[in-house]
Simulated assay, not measured.
Amino acid sequence: MTRSPRRTPPVTAFAALHHADEPLLLPNAWDYASAQALAGQGFRAVATTSLGVAAVAGLPDAAAATREETLRLAFALGARPLLLSVDAEGGFDDDPDEVAEFARELYAVGVAGINLEDGLAPAERLAGKIAAVKKAVPVLFVNARTDTHWLGDGDTADTLSRLDAYQAAGADGVFVPGLTDPRRISALVRHLDAPLNVLYSPAGPPVRELADAGARRISLGSLLYRRALGAALRAAADIRSGRTPAGPTPSYEDVTDLLPRGHGAASAPRA
Rank of each mutant, 00 (worst) to 15 (best):
G78E: 07
G262N: 06
R104H: 12
I130L: 09
S222N: 13
A103S: 07
P202I: 09
V56K: 13
R261M: 12
L73C: 10
S251G: 15
L106W: 02
L224T: 08
V11W: 00
R216E: 01
A203F: 08
D21P: 02
N197Y: 04
G214C: 06
S186H: 03
H191K: 13
L17A: 09
D147M: 04
T148M: 04
L160R: 14
V56G: 08
D95V: 15
V133K: 06
T2I: 15
V56Q: 15
N115Y: 04
L259T: 05
A131C: 08
D31G: 11
R184D: 14
L151M: 15
R183V: 15
S241F: 01
G173N: 04
R216F: 01
L196N: 03
R183G: 11
P250Q: 04
V255M: 11
D181L: 04
V11P: 07
A74L: 04
A103H: 03
K135G: 14
D61G: 10
G221C: 06
D257F: 05
P177F: 04
P60S: 09
E68W: 04
H191E: 14
L229W: 01
L199I: 05
A57V: 10
G247F: 07
G242M: 09
F141R: 07
L25T: 13
R217G: 12
P250V: 12
D254H: 07
N143K: 08
A57D: 10
A123M: 09
L106N: 05
R270C: 08
P195T: 07
A271I: 15
V11D: 13
T12N: 10
A123S: 14
P202M: 09
A157D: 14
R217Q: 14
G178W: 01
S241C: 13
A64V: 04
G242V: 08
A62F: 13
G262Q: 05
W30R: 05
R44T: 11
V53F: 00
V53A: 03
